[in-house]
């Protein structure tokens, strides 16, 4: 089969789950006739009908909460945010009503909250954000950030089948830029298990989402000088695969944590603490963070380039750690 884009992979995942399970439905802004701002759900309304592909008013709080209410009746809503930046308009609903529902009063919330996040397309401060950590910080939520088409497909399927609320951050930069052949059949990817994107013995790069590809490019350059990166793609920032983090540190003894989210309060700080707790004695060099700057995502291309982590940052820090 021909390779498909990250975007098509998500479409396939949603489609297959909707065919498989009549309890799955889509709800969001412009998801019906128009097929969503990025065309993720194009064609769905014709096949599944307007009962299962619901266009809403511009009301993010209502999208998330109506999903929750429908979940209380045994359905599995997939709520779309046109951009994950707008998830802030449903913040109370997600972190208070949805995240705490099962723990507080035993009412499960089997639902997915998904949409495009991330920078690199000159979206500016309100169409480029990586708000995953607000939710990783909230007990009761699962937070998924796939980097590859097959993971995007396998993880959206798992998220839909999960009995708990899952936030699914799609990276808009990857939508049409990467392609991969999909595995045959109904393949799901387990939530909470990291993936070794590239094996190597010298420096570990623990990362996720679009930064996997920045690390990948850096790895190719470094390999020419004999430095082998091991790239760990976390896939989910909550739950975190602590075992995978421990294993790679014990293997390479040198760690870079790389993410597109800004530095303060990003998952890198948490991972550094986990390494401290589980593998401190195995470190041969200080843990290094490479992240976006602690400023809003800028609009103009040179400003945005300056703001984001770059291949050369990874190359430079890897060389430094090897020599340390």
């Amino acid at each position: 089969m021909a390779p498909v884009t990250y975007l098509e992979a998500i479409r396939q995942g949603l489609w297959e789950e909707m065919v498989r399970d009549p309890s799955v439905f889509l709800i969001g802004e412009d998801v019906g006739v128009y097929g969503g701002a990025f065309k993720i759900t194009e064609g769905f309304i014709h096949h599944f009908g307007k009962e299962r592909v619901i266009d809403t008013p511009i009301s993010e709080a209502a999208i998330a909460s109506a999903g929750l209410g429908a979940a209380f009746t045994g359905l599995r809503p997939v709520c779309e945010f046109q951009f994950m930046d707008f998830i802030t308009s449903a913040h109370t609903q997600i972190v208070n009503a949805i995240a705490k529902s099962y723990w507080r009063w035993g009412a499960p919330a089997p639902m997915v909250l998904r949409g495009p996040s991330g920078a690199g397309v000159s979206g500016g401060p309100f169409h480029s954000q990586n708000p995953e950590m607000w939710y990783a910080h909230t007990p009761g939520l699962k937070v998924i950030c796939p980097a590859t088409p097959s993971d995007a497909k396998g993880l959206i399927k798992s998220a839909i089948r999960d009995n708990n609320p899952c936030l699914f951050f799609e990276h808009k930069y990857l939508y049409r830029r990467i392609k991969e052949e999909m595995p045959e059949g109904d393949v799901v990817v387990e939530i909470g298990k990291a993936r070794t994107h590239r094996a190597g013995g010298h420096v570990s790069v623990i990362t996720y989402a679009s930064m996997v590809w920045v690390a990948d490019e850096a790895a190719k350059l470094l390999a020419q000088e004999g430095i082998e990166l091991e790239i760990i793609d976390l896939r989910t920032v909550s739950p975190l695969d602590e075992q995978a983090i421990e294993d790679t540190v014990k293997k390479t003894n040198r760690v870079i944590i790389l993410h597109e989210d800004n530095k303060t309060g990003g998952i890198a700080g948490e991972i550094a603490a986990i390494i401290n707790e589980r593998a401190f004695d195995w470190l041969d060099a200080p843990i290094t963070r490479i992240t976006a700057l602690d400023i809003p995502a800028p609009f103009s291309p040179p400003l945005e380039k300056f703001f984001l982590p770059k291949v050369e940052d990874v190359v430079r820090e890897a060389r430094r750690l090897v020599k340390y």
């Binding site: 209502a62 909460s65 429908a70 009746t73």
Partner: peptide, 30 residues
């Protein structure tokens, strides 16, 4: 949610409104 169909409120006022709308949407889909 099993017998009495009562939504447990959260403190945040107004928040149950879209939730109950969702319950009714779920019922209609069924």
């Amino acid at each position: 949610i099993h017998e009495k169909n009562c939504i447990a409120p959260i403190s945040h006022l107004g928040d149950s409104l879209p939730v109950i709308a969702g319950c009714l949407l779920g019922a209609r889909i069924q």
